[in-house]
């Protein structure tokens, strides 16, 4: 029986001034009534983001509010296998949908003083800390690609895109890095 090493291969692997691709992670789309899920998730020591467009972290897992009944759960790849059974146990009896999307998307980290400038090249959102504080997360667009954006610190963002859009997004970011290098 042939068995592969089964190492995850990313659709784009690159970095430049201001950004880098992150290692593969575990991602799940959780759809559930937040009011019904808040207690059980808390009891199971799993995060649930209640505030609009904000992320919540608990242990190894973070929950990103993407819609009124939609959370993106993000964790380490090494913890991937244990999440589904934990969730199933926690949400037993609560109508929900949990779908593994770990391979659907990959993450880029933007950091440093040029991070917001790189984002402004393709994303129409205002990254002023008053409207997008640390913890802000949302689905939005980067040029012609849909992305999920998560502000993890003042100058540190995580940007997730579907895998076939990643070469496009990283290509644009590479252009942006050139501009940052030229000091513009």
């Amino acid at each position: 029986m042939l068995k592969l090493k089964a190492a995850r291969t990313l659709p784009a692997r690159a970095s430049a001034l201001g950004w880098r691709m992150l290692d593969p992670r575990s991602c799940w789309s959780l759809r559930v009534d937040l009011v019904a899920a808040a207690g059980p998730m808390s009891a199971a020591d799993l995060p649930l983001a209640i505030d609009v467009c904000r992320a919540a972290t608990r242990g190894d897992w973070s929950a990103l509010w993407l819609g009124p009944d939609e959370q993106l759960l993000v964790g380490l790849d090494s913890a991937h296998a244990q999440l589904a059974p934990r969730l199933a146990a926690a949400l037993d009896g609560v109508a929900h949908s949990i779908v593994d999307v770990s391979h659907r998307q990959a993450a880029i980290e933007l950091s440093g003083p040029g991070a917001t400038r790189l984002l402004a090249m393709g994303c129409p959102l205002d990254f002023d800390l008053r409207s997008a504080p640390v913890g802000f997360c949302t689905r939005t667009v980067y040029a012609k690609a849909e992305v999920v954006l998560w502000r993890q610190d003042t100058q540190r963002f995580q940007l997730q895109a579907w895998r076939s859009f990643l070469p496009y997004v990283t290509g644009l970011l590479a252009l942006g890095s050139q501009e940052l290098t030229a000091g513009i």
Binding site: A143, Y168, L175
Partner: peptide
Amino acid sequence: GYARGDFFAPVRKTP
């Protein structure tokens, strides 16, 4: 702007 050549639109490729 950037929307020329390779960046006119995303070109999606499978694994």
